[in-house]
Amino acid sequence: MSKAAPALTHLSRLEAESIEIFREVAASFERPVMMYSIGKDSSVLLHLARKAFYPSRIPFPLLHIDTTWKFAEMIGFRDRMAEEYGFELRVHTNPEGLAANINPFEHGSARYTDVMKTQALRQALNAGQYDAAIGGARRDEEKSRAKERVFSHRNANHAWDPKNQRPELWRTFNTRINPGESMRVFPLSNWTELDIWTYIYSEQIPIVPLYFAKPRPVVERSGTLIMVDDDRLPLEAGEAPREEIVRFRTLGCYPLTGAIRSNAGTLPEIIMEMQASRTSEREGRLIDSDQAGSMEKKKQEGYF
C-alpha cells in the first residue's frame, strides 16, 4: 500500500462536495425528490447520486416534468436510464395545460412555460408532498443563480425570497423547515459548464445524443435554428425544413431550444468547441431574454 496520500484534483473536490450534499438531503428530509430534466447536468446529477449512496440505491424518486414538447430522443433516453440504473421515475404533466392544449406557438413562450413548467412543477411538488427537491442548477449559469444558496428555502407557495436567504457557512447546512415549506437543493452549485463536460468525459457518463453533431432537419427563425422533431411544429408559409449538421448545447422543449451549427461529434470535440466559443450557455434558451432579471422573477414565482 502506498504511503503517500493522493492529492485531490479540482474535479474530485467538486464531486465530494456534491456527494456530501446528496447525503445531507437523504439524512435530513422525510420526502426528498430529485428533479430529472434529462440534460447533461441531470446526467451528472444522476451519476453523483448513484455514487453518494452506493452500494444502496438512490433512496428517493426522480421527477420529470414532461411538457409533452421535449425531444423524442430525450424521452427514450430517460426511460432507458431508469431501467438501467433502477431508480424510481415519476413523470408529471399539467393535466389542465394538456386539456387546454397549451403550446409554445399559440400561447407564447412565457404563458407556455408558466403553465407547462412552473405550474406543473408546483402541482407535482404539492402532490408528492416533497419536502426537498434536488435540482441541477449551477451558480455560473445566470446572475441570480450566483447568489442562491445550496440549500435554498421555499415558503409554502414554493416562492424564493432572495433578500431573506439564510446565511450558509462552511458545509454546515441548515436543513430545518416548517410544515408546508420546502427546500430546493443544488448539489452542482459550484460547478461550471466546463467542469460538467470534463467530468462527463472522465467518468464516461451517458448523455442524450442530441448533444453530438449530426445532420438534423431544422428551420431558422429570427436567427435561431429550431429542429423539426415531429410534425407538430407549424411551418410558416414558404418555410421548409432543411438538413444541417447541428447539435444542442442545452436541452429543453424542442420548439424553444436553439441548435448550433457544429461539427463536434465527440466529447473532446464538444469540450474544445465550447472552450473556443464566445457565447454563454443559456443564450440558446429563449425564456431568459424576455426582460432583465427575468430568471430572478421566475424563481420568486417558484420556477426552478
Partner: peptide, 23 residues
C-alpha cells in the same frame, strides 16, 4: 457583471454574497 439581483442593480450596491468562477 457581478451585481446580480435586480434590487442591487437599482440601488447600485451589493447586498448578498455572489459566487463567481474563473480559471
Amino acid at each position: 457583471l457581478v451585481d446580480g439581483l435586480v434590487a442591487e442593480r437599482e440601488q447600485g450596491i451589493t447586498i448578498d454574497v455572489a459566487y463567481r468562477f474563473f480559471s
